[in-house]
Write a protein that binds this DNA or RNA. Structure first.
Length: 362
DNA sequence: AATGCGGGGGT
DNA sequence: ACCCCAGCATT
């Protein structure tokens, strides 16, 4: 059945006007004070929405304030050095967001005179701007009645309207978009969309929702049946694969430490790290030989001084941290260099390797 | 349609 | 442990 027909069926006997009014009134009185709600500046809304992808509000706030201070306008961000942008993103995760954002801002400056497009097609073509972010910018910054369906919205609507589709599937997001097109307030789409997300964040939470405080409890089908914690339905993802490494803390005669820039694609792209030896490819006894082949340096390797476990969304690094000093050879490795302790903190490091910084002054 | 892509907080 | 979070790009 087509989504529009399903929506028509689902909202039968549902008081849409009452729902809109209750939601928007609740949002206007109960919304949190957040830095990106100071005004409707599309650039600020854009930055906030990118940072908020898969990331909690409390985590984003300090990053947002710092980022806007460093890069207050599209022009400032477009001109900035990529490493500087990554440094401002350091610790926030999903670093391709930062790289895509800068790429998109450059396009806005060059093709649209620095004005964030209010045209859905133009906006949606920008790097890093997907269906959710597009709708969020259009509704919040430009007051256009476009759906902005994120995890909150799917959870709230699945409960209110008792929708049992698997929200892990792409097709289900489109069903909810069709639903929002039908339900959204044409006079205040911004408060409607933000109200849905705010409700999901403050009241209609995943584990133990505060239904007694909910402004639309009266209309919630899941609550009336006592199945609010059974929804939404979401298929579980498989668990992470463990990858073992030896991570080398290599110092030269001057006490400088060897670090390297990761490739510009893939995991932690263009971030910095200490050299890692994958124990899936290299035997622990052959680390010294392997390192000479890869880096052109001979080492005297010490005893392991630390064990670092780092969990990603799709894999787990288990790193043995091993100190070493250079005994000979010539550094022959792209994007690798010895740096002093001052320089090292100016480079963008993923959290996994920040855990190793503490050994800088042994 | 499925997978890769970070990191932190809640339960 | 597991789940989730104001998701997107790539295949």
């Amino acid at each position: 059945m087509k989504n529009e027909q399903r929506v028509q069926h689902i909202v039968e006997d549902f008081d849409e006007n009452k729902f809109r009014d209750s939601l928007i009134n609740w949002f206007k009185t109960e919304q949190r004070t957040l830095p990106w709600r100071d005004n409707q500046d599309p650039y600020r809304v854009w930055i906030s929405e990118i940072m908020l992808q898969q990331t909690r509000v409390d985590t984003v706030i300090p990053y947002f304030n710092n980022f806007l201070t460093k890069f207050p306008t599209p022009e400032a961000l477009a001109e900035a050095d990529e490493q500087e942008v990554l440094k401002a993103w350091e610790g926030l995760g999903y670093y391709s967001r930062a790289r895509n954002l800068q790429n998109a801002v450059c396009e806005v400056v060059e093709a649209y005179g620095g004005i964030v497009p209010s045209d859905p097609d133009e906006l949606g073509k920008l790097k890093g701007v997907g269906p959710y972010t597009k709708g969020a910018i259009l509704s919040i910054a430009y007051d256009l009645p476009e759906p902005a369906v994120d995890g909150n919205v799917m959870r709230v609507l699945s409960r209110i309207l008792k929708v049992e589709d698997d929200i892990a599937k792409q097709s289900t997001r489109k069903l909810f978009e069709a639903m929002v097109y039908r339900l959204i307030s044409k006079s205040d789409p911004s408060s409607f969309n933000q109200g849905m997300m705010e409700l999901g964040a403050l009241i209609c939470t995943p584990k133990s929702p505060s239904c007694l405080l909910c402004p639309v409890q009266e209309q919630c089908r899941a609550f009336s049946e006592g199945i609010e914690t059974e929804l939404p339905v979401k298929s579980s993802k498989k668990k992470q694969k463990k990858l073992p490494f030896v991570t080398l803390f290599v110092q030269n005669e001057s006490g400088e430490v060897l670090v390297e820039k990761r490739p510009d694609q893939g995991l932690l792209a263009s971030m910095w790290q200490y050299p890692m030896v994958p124990l899936t490819d290299v035997d622990e006894a052959d680390v010294r030989t392997w390192f000479y082949g890869e880096y052109g340096l001979t080492l005297e390797i010490g005893e392991s001084i630390d064990k670092v476990k780092h969990v990603f969304s799709h894999l787990i690094w288990e790193m043995q941290v091993v100190p070493a000093v250079v005994t000979g050879g010539e550094l022959d490795r792209e994007r690798a260099e010895f740096v002093d302790s001052k320089k090292i903190f100016e480079l963008p490091f993923p959290v996994s390797h920040q855990k190793i910084h503490k050994h800088i002054n042994p």
